[in-house]
Design a protein around this nucleic acid. Structure first.
Length: 471
DNA sequence: CCTGGAGTTGTCCTA
DNA sequence: TTAGGACAACTCCAG
């Protein structure tokens, strides 16, 4: 065994159940945690996530400090050139956990070749999933394309493995440094951007993740089935950003769920959401082309429109449909949007405005603290109808009905769209129908008229879908 | 190989 | 007022 070990930190900001980190501490005298920050991957592309990573680095550094382990950050233009520099060092082994994205897996292969040539010991561990995607296949060895059978099989495979690995790294007696030069963590992120208000809503730490999970399981999971659809209520777990950056391992979430004594409907529904996460990973790895294009080819002929005004109104939350605008503003304010509202806003962009899902995908990528390629792509393609197991085309969310159904009193709308604060309940999801005048409020002045008419937009979306069927 | 059932999250119209 | 069917037909998957 070499004296030094490097744990290459990527999406695993946790001490508990972190296989690569634990392995390094159990087998080596000196352990360093190295994070390579590639600016171009974040700037103007994943700004919300950039904030999350920055805070995660600061918090994780403290956790590692308790173990006498040093966290070293390198600012980089490319992973490969940075790796080439690291490979110049002598007498070390390197470990990391997998990220299930085609590009990352390909990069792993490349690095493995280089490590082999230099005789540097390495080990790659399972990442933040229940099953690795290639463990779940149909009997004929092809991948599942429908969720239910996929999940039925995947759950069984996971249960059959029946293992529990509640691993913890071993504390060092003294700190050691590996890299001669490393960057300041502050260089990863320049404060005073729009993301600054996120601190009011999120604490990107491992401790917070387990706190949230505990609270969710003791208070909310019982009613998850119904409450998860009400955006004004904290009925969902809000664990997504912690899962995305690995402040918690999905196996931990699973296991804590299994420990529940009373397993009601809510429990099943919640576990299924973990299933969708697994399904998305499976899809993008078996069909990597879907990261860039429609999974269902017939959608290549869909008559999308280009409309900068509409796109910008959607992004700013100025479409004139209160539930849509509330969602977009929640996203901008907090780096997160409630699941039900993600569907409504996405459907609105794709079907009412007929703007390509890639535009929406890009915007969400920039604004979500829980951004993850697999979920984001699979989700947008699902809404658009061009993905796997997707919604049928005639299923077009009516933003007024959705509002009335899931935000009855309009409290979600009023929280995020302050202009509508005084609008009576009856009209909160359709302020344009209001006859009475309200002081200091005038439609078209304080808040926009709907940018498209629901009925007309719906008709034209249906027509557009008819068109691709013909081709 | 054939067969039948099913398919995350809806909407709208009719009786 | 409300419940039920139409919306389309295709692909996936298991038996």
């Amino acid at each position: 065994m070499t004296k030094n070990a490097v744990f290459w930190l990527r999406e695993d900001f946790r001490v508990k159940r972190n296989d690569a980190l634990t392995y390094a501490t159990l087998n080596h005298e000196n352990v360093s945690v190295v994070y390579i920050f590639k600016k171009q991957e974040f700037e103007k592309k994943r700004e919300a996530k950039q904030w999350w990573i920055y805070k995660s680095l600061l918090n994780f550094e403290k956790d590692l400090d308790n173990l006498n382990i040093n966290l070293e950050v390198i600012l980089s233009d490319s992973y490969e050139s940075t790796f080439d520099k690291i490979l110049q060092y002598k007498n070390f082994s390197i470990y990391w956990n997998k990220i299930y994205e085609p590009d990352f897996l390909k990069f792993d292969e490349k690095i493995v070749l280089k490590l082999g040539k230099k005789n540097i010991p390495y080990k790659i561990f399972k990442g933040n999933v229940l099953n690795e995607f290639n463990e779940v296949k149909k009997n004929d060895n092809t991948p599942f394309k429908v969720f239910s059978p996929f999940w039925k099989n995947a759950e069984k495979i996971y249960l059959d493995k029946g293992f529990s690995r509640d691993s913890l790294p071993k504390k060092r007696t003294s700190k050691s440094k590996f890299l001669k030069e490393y960057s300041k963590k502050e260089d990863v992120f320049k404060p005073a951007n729009w993301q600054d208000k996120f601190s009011e809503y999120w604490d990107p730490s491992e401790k917070e993740a387990s706190k949230i999970l505990k609270k969710f399981l003791s208070e909310n999971i019982i009613n998850y089935g119904d409450q998860r659809d009400i955006p004004s209520v904290k009925g969902t777990s809000r664990l997504s950003p912690y899962l995305a950056s690995g402040q918690i391992h999905v196996e931990t979430v699973w296991e804590e769920c299994e420990k529940l004594k009373v397993k009601k409907r809510g429990y099943r529904k919640f576990i299924n959401e973990l299933g969708w996460r697994e399904f998305s990973y499976s899809l993008i790895n078996y069909f990597p082309e879907m990261l860039k294009q429609n999974l269902r080819k017939e959608f290549d002929n869909f008559p999308w429109t280009e409309n900068k005004k509409f796109l910008s109104a959607w992004k700013k939350g100025l479409t004139g449909y209160p539930i849509v605008d509330a969602g977009m503003r929640e996203l901008y304010e907090t780096g997160w949007m409630h699941n039900r509202v993600r569907m409504i806003t996405a459907s609105f962009l794709v079907k009412h405005l007929r703007i390509h899902w890639k535009e929406g995908e890009k915007h969400f990528q920039n604004c979500l603290v829980d951004f993850n390629s697999a979920n984001n792509t699979a989700g947008w393609q699902w809404v658009s109808g061009c993905g796997a197991d997707a919604a049928p085309y005639f299923r077009i969310f009516n933003p007024i009905l959705q509002g009335e159904k899931f935000d009855k009193k309009g409290s979600y709308v009023k929280k995020w769209v302050k202009e509508l604060k005084e609008i009576p309940e009856e009209f909160i999801h359709k302020p344009w129908e209001m006859k009475n005048k309200i002081q200091n409020f005038e439609l078209g002045k304080n808040y926009p008229f709907p940018i498209v008419d629901h009925q007309l937009a719906r008709q034209s979306a249906l027509k557009a879908f008819q068109q691709i069927k013909k081709n």
